[in-house]
Amino acid sequence: MTSDDLSYEEARAELARVVERLESGGGTLEESLALWERGEKLAEICQRWLDGARARLDAARPSS
């Protein structure tokens, strides 16, 4: 699965799962770090998606 193919909803849902797993603790430190890195990446994807949506909105709006 390449991260950039995720839809916003998929990325957000996975991000929520990652946070939950991190919060529940458990797993090795290495696993936790990998999870955290994944979470950061997913958050980035979500943010990029939202920023893109806003840019499209601004572009489509009549300049006012």
């Binding site: 957000r12 991000l15 929520a16 919060e23 979470g39 958050a43 943010q47 939202l50």
Partner: peptide, 9 residues
């Protein structure tokens, strides 16, 4: 998204 990102983890 902000809420998720602001979680301490």
């Amino acid at each position: 998204l902000d809420a998720l990102r602001s979680r301490p983890v």
